[in-house]
């Protein structure tokens, strides 16, 4: 039977990504279908997909710079075309690095690299950092955050060495702000935007955790929502409302299998799709 992505979310499997399976599971948790598309398969298959996710990992071994080799892969031509047509695309962690390196994000000048995901800058440590963070929605018009409440604090873990959003182009930054593209910011568990480590875990300017394009259909985010899609994935000792909810679910495996905070991003896609239909 011919492969088809009709009605499905396509998870792009570049060589070296390592979150493709759990990302597909997270998509399925909201009742959408998901399937993997290997980097060297026919990109035309993507034309029928609801949306596309570039999952986390170390595509092409982070050769040269994280995300840069994948950004030059021919499959990105098809993604560019579909992005232009308003199709939702989400890049998580390494996927975010790919979207930045391919110039989809911020995309003010389409396919021009105006932003970087630079090595983390942290207090008294360097390199890879794996920890839970709290996110606050910044702008309004993004497919992937449409289900997130205005004041809602969403805990999601990060795990990366190069996740510091930065640019030295004041004009670009100004445009991004004006357009509401700084869609996700690191915050305290009470929802305060504070640039101090570890609240801002990597030194991103403006506490940027996720940046979308002007049109809001493409999102590059460093935190991993697929690792926070079920309540059981939330650490029991996590501060804030979700940690309390997790503690209260202790001893109840049924509750553990209910939604975690990160599912909201996949719920957003579903809501968009239903609105679209």
């Amino acid at each position: 039977m011919a492969r088809s992505f009709t009605g499905k979310v396509a998870i792009i499997q570049f060589p070296g990504v390592n979150c493709e399976y759990e990302t597909a599971d997270a998509v399925r948790s909201v009742g959408l279908e998901a399937d993997l598309l290997r980097w060297n398969e026919d990109p035309v298959l993507l034309e029928d997909a609801i949306g596309m996710i570039i999952p986390g990992g170390f595509s092409y071994q982070d050769r040269i710079r994280a995300g840069v080799v994948s950004a030059k892969d021919h499959i990105m031509d098809k993604l560019s075309e579909l992005a232009g047509a308003g199709r939702p695309i989400l890049g998580i962690c390494n996927g975010a690095q790919v979207l930045v390196e391919s110039g989809f994000i911020p995309g003010i000048h389409w396919e021009r690299v105006d932003l970087a995901l630079a090595p983390n800058v942290m207090e008294d440590r360097d390199g890879y950092y794996c920890s839970w963070t709290y996110l606050l929605r910044g702008g309004t018009d993004c497919v992937w955050t449409m289900a997130v409440g205005a004041e809602e604090v969403v805990p999601v873990p990060i795990a990366h060495a190069e996740g510091r959003f930065t640019t030295d182009d004041g004009e670009v930054l100004g445009e991004m702000k004006k357009n509401g593209q700084i869609i996700l910011q690191y915050c305290t568990q009470a929802g305060q935007i504070d640039p101090a480590f570890p609240i801002n875990p990597n030194g991103s300017i403006e506490n940027m955790a996720g940046v979308c394009n002007r049109e809001g259909n493409v999102l590059a985010m460093m935190p991993h929502p697929e690792r926070a899609t079920w309540l059981r994935q939330v650490p029991e000792d996590l501060g804030g409302g979700w940690g309390t909810k997790r503690k209260k679910a202790g001893g109840d495996s049924g509750k553990m299998e209910t939604a975690g905070p990160g599912r909201i991003f996949f719920e957003s896609l579903k809501r968009w799709k239903e609105g679209d239909a």
């Binding site: 399976y21 986390g56 440590r125 950092y129 794996c130 920890s131 991993h224 697929e226 690792r227 079920w230």
Partner: peptide, 16 residues
């Protein structure tokens, strides 16, 4: 401090 150098979340199965 050391544990945070390692990815303990990937695969999404972590409970503790």
């Amino acid at each position: 401090y050391v544990f945070k150098h390692y990815d303990s979340e990937v695969q999404g199965r972590a409970v503790i």
